[in-house]
Each structure stands twice: as structure tokens, then as C-alpha cells.
């Protein structure tokens, strides 16, 4: 096995497996640990500049990457006109710089504010550093190897699809320049770290808020259909038999 296979075939699968399996285990087993861990209460002003820039910058750039994976032809068609190509590249670069400044502010805030240092775990620093590396290598890639929106659909779209469809072709990234490879590997590193860090809060984005009713009222003692019992059957008499499927519900209140 050569380095290329290890870094761009084996490691991505390990990272993806970790991300999926550990995330599910954590969301189900230790839901209390899943939180965005906001520190706005402790420090608000620097967070405004750091958090807004970092989040919106990264969300938009990641969205663009995702579009390139899902709609490569659309991207190529868009970039066929030079003006549109420049517009896209400049927007991407500006967003990356904005996000980079945001991450830098957050990192500096975490190091300099006494209150924030107290609530910082080693993993918080790791995440911020990985994001910073990702943004810097991304900016180098975009400026030194122009134009990403031309060659991304030809290189990374097939690479990523080859991984997702279980017919991996790591040779696609084998001969790429160092900085691009670094950018890609750093991405897989972020995926691997995802379930072990605060990054897991990304999967809890509360889109359901857009349509749920304003008020939530819960009946604790009203009889409801049990998971293990068909609704038509009346409630079983006490002590008739244990209900194994319900043992996990946890006391009077349910675990979640």
C-alpha cells in the first residue's frame, strides 16, 4: 500500500465510518453532550465578528463545494463565460478570507479572554486550527492553481463519487500539487474529528423550527400507544409481563 492509497482511500473511509457511527452513538447514547457550546454569554463583542464571519463564510463555501459535487455540469456551464467565472472565483475568495478572519478572531478570543479559556477544551483548539488550515490551504489552492471551478468537476467530483459508490479511485488525486492534497487530507481529518468534537452540532441544525407549532405541550400521564403494543390492544394489566422494548425509555419521564 502506498501513501496515496493510505491517505486518500483508507483514511477517508475510516473518517466517514467514524463520522457516521460515532455520531449516531453519541446522539443516541449521550444526547446531553451534543451542544453548540455557545460562549456568547461570557463574551459577546468579539464573538459577533468572529462567529458570524466564520459560520456564514464556511456555510456558503461548503455549499459551493457541495454544488460542484452534485451539479458538475451546471458549474462548468456557469464558468463558460469569463465574467461569470471571475465573479464566482472572486466571491469564493472573499468568503474564504472573511471566514479566515473569523476563525482567527475566534482563536485569538479563545486564547486571550480569561473567561473563554476556562470553557475551552483541547478539542476546541484542534477544531479551530483544522478550520484555519483548511481555509489557508483552500486560499492557496484557489489562487495558485487557477481556476478551481474549471478543474474541480474533472478531478474531485469523480474522486468523491468514486468513494461514495464504493469504487474508489484514489489515483485521481495522486499527482496533484502538495497544497491541494493537503487541503483534501485536511478535509478528511475534519470529518474524522467531527463526531468527537463540538462540530457534531452541525447535524442538529433546527430546520424543523420553520414549521413546528409555536407551543409544545406534553401529556405525561395520558395513555398513548406503546411502541411494543398494537394500539387496538388495551393497556396490559400491571405485572403481567415485562416489556423489553420499553425498558430503555428510562423512568417516568423517558430519556428524550
Amino acid at each position: 500500500m502506498n501513501w496515496n492509497t493510505l491517505l486518500f482511500l483508507v483514511f477517508p473511509y475510516v473518517a466517514l465510518a467514524l463520522a457516521v457511527v460515532v455520531s449516531i452513538l453519541r446522539m443516541r447514547g449521550r444526547p446531553f453532550s451534543v451542544s453548540a457550546q455557545s460562549s456568547q454569554l461570557l463574551e459577546s463583542r468579539k464573538l459577533y465578528f468572529g462567529s458570524t464571519a466564520m459560520h456564514w463564510g464556511l456555510v456558503l463555501i461548503l455549499g459551493a463545494h457541495l454544488l460542484a459535487v452534485l451539479l458538475p455540469k451546471g458549474l462548468l456551464l456557469w464558468s463558460a463565460v469569463p465574467l461569470r467565472l471571475y465573479l464566482l472565483e472572486i466571491t469564493g475568495l472573499a468568503l474564504a478570507l472573511w471566514a479566515g478572519v473569523g476563525v482567527w478572531i475566534l482563536l485569538a478570543r479563545r486564547l486571550s479572554e480569561a473567561r473563554i479559556r476556562v470553557v475551552s477544551t483541547p478539542m476546541d483548539y484542534v477544531v479551530l486550527l483544522l478550520l484555519l488550515v483548511s481555509i489557508i490551504t483552500g486560499i492557496i489552492t484557489a489562487s495558485a492553481y487557477r481556476f478551481g471551478s474549471y478543474w474541480f468537476p474533472a478531478v474531485f467530483t469523480p474522486y468523491l463519487w468514486s468513494l461514495f459508490t464504493l469504487q474508489p479511485r484514489p489515483e485521481l488525486v495522486a499527482d496533484l500539487p502538495f497544497w491541494i492534497q493537503f487541503h483534501v487530507f485536511n478535509f478528511w481529518l475534519l470529518v474524522a474529528v467531527f463526531p468527537f468534537s463540538r462540530l457534531i452540532h452541525i447535524v442538529t441544525v433546527p430546520l424543523g423550527y420553520l414549521w413546528r407549532p409555536w407551543q409544545i405541550v406534553i401529556w405525561l400521564r395520558r395513555k398513548r400507544p406503546l411502541r411494543a403494543t398494537p394500539p387496538a390492544v388495551p393497556h396490559p394489566a400491571p405485572a403481567s409481563k415485562p416489556q423489553p422494548a420499553l425498558q430503555d425509555k428510562g423512568g417516568s419521564y423517558g430519556s428524550d
Binding site: 446531553f32 457550546q37 456568547q40 407551543q215 405541550v217 405525561l220
Partner: peptide, 29 residues
């Protein structure tokens, strides 16, 4: 309750107590 994006806060119908489900709370504050 209405402001919580996660839907983590609820009112108990039996006695009206408003509670935060700490497992659902995701710190959107």
C-alpha cells in the same frame, strides 16, 4: 417555548410546569 429552535422546551399539560429537555437543548440560547 416558542423561541426554541430545537423544540427543547415544553409545557407539561398536567400541571403547567415549563421545562427544558436538556438532551434536546443545543445551546441556540
Amino acid at each position: 417555548v416558542a423561541a426554541c429552535p430545537s423544540g427543547a422546551i415544553y409545557k407539561r399539560a398536567e400541571d403547567g410546569v415549563v421545562l427544558v429537555n436538556e438532551n434536546k437543548c443545543k445551546a441556540w440560547r
